[in-house]
Design a protein around this nucleic acid. Structure first.
Lengths: 201, 201
DNA sequence: ATAAAAAACTAACATTTGTTAGCCTTTTAT
DNA sequence: ATAAAAGGCTAACAAATGTTAGTTTTTTAT
């Protein structure tokens, strides 16, 4: 059956996905070549095709893996009975942690989805639209319940999601600021933007 | 000398930059070909080289044009004597408007700079680092003056800049939300995140 | 009108691309 | 031990890439 794996607990396909995500982020999907990838995996380019079907299959796997993870977490949050502000905080924290723990994968899903071939591209965009709509619904509810300020929900969603993806720039200068401080500060910043205006001093 | 231009007031090189920015955004720098670009300009691929020196010269022109615009605006703001919160608001509004008015250019500068060849790449990153540092300094000052909450300045800068670049996603669904509402909401959201915490109700 | 300059075109180049075919080697299962 | 399966390798492909050379056409200036 399967040969001994390069690293514990991971099939060769998983190794390929991992190396590919690193490479795609560094060079972009279009500029990263299969020979490039093969070298990082430690194999000839042709051999990759014993594990995957095509270059874009790699992209599909990465993009939908990330999308599914976000969606399934959202379902848990939606089903809970937290106040809306807490729901949003939970979701923001998830996004931040995903960005910290699975940086490469999330980055690819965020930035390289344009190169998905149809019908996967439409599929991906539909899922994304739906995800954002569901976040906007939570905010909509927060406004109606008087827990959040009267802001256009869709604008808030865009702002939050994009803000989190800025962690990208932080990944290189980890030294000066810890992950905990980053998460704490960012949550404060974003939740404060949502919260209903308190009284002036 | 120069031939009659395709559009008023623009040299052929400017036309090339404009079409290229649109193309690079749609397909990514790596996946956009010179023949592709030539077709959009209405000319054969080889003819482009009467106006530009290389594909990456186009990218350089776009990236540095945007960078210079942001930097020179920042200098004006720094020299003013507004309170720090107002300074940040001015800058945020500039970023939002640039994203609305020069969407393609800003997008390229934000997302495709990785493909700049050296030494332009280092140059660009230095400029960017410096720009962010200067924004962080304004926030630092805002905190010391008690105008802003005690947040890590660099985190705030990242959050703000990334949030604005999320307007990208909005560009396609302009219909439902006007540019004015977008700008207003986003500024409220982000400035609220900076402002020193007011008293609880 | 004519010479000069600018810019277009055709053809071709050397690389690089993703991918396949065919063969050999290693691992697995009996 | 042996057959089968899985996975690696070399070589090659057709297509596409950025770019150059050389030539012809168009525009500008005198």
């Amino acid at each position: 059956m399967a040969k001994i794996q390069s690293k514990k607990n991971s099939t060769k396909k998983e190794v390929i996905l991992e190396k590919a995500s690193k490479l795609f982020r560094e060079k972009g999907f279009g500029a990263a070549s299969m020979r490039d990838l093969a070298e990082h995996v430690g194999v000839e380019a042709a051999s990759l095709y014993n594990h995957i079907q095509s270059k874009s299959e790699i992209l599909q796997a990465i993009c939908f893996k990330v999308a599914n993870e976000f969606i399934s977490h959202l379902e848990v949050v939606e089903a809970s009975s937290q106040p809306t502000l807490k729901k949003m905080e939970t979701i923001i924290r998830l996004h931040i942690r995903m960005m910290l723990d699975q940086y490469e994968y999330v980055y690819i899903s965020d930035h390289e989805w344009r190169h998905l071939p149809e019908p996967y591209l439409s599929n991906f965009l539909n899922q994304r639209r739906s995800y954002r709509k569901r976040l906007a619904d939570i905010i909509e509810q927060g406004i109606q319940r008087g827990e959040m300020k009267n802001i256009e929900p869709y604008v808030a969603v865009l702002t939050i999601l994009s803000a989190v993806s800025g962690i990208d720039s932080w990944q290189r200068s980890r030294k000066s600021i810890s992950a905990e401080v980053l998460e704490g500060n960012m949550v404060t910043f974003l939740i404060e933007g949502l919260k209903k205006q308190d009284l002036k001093m």
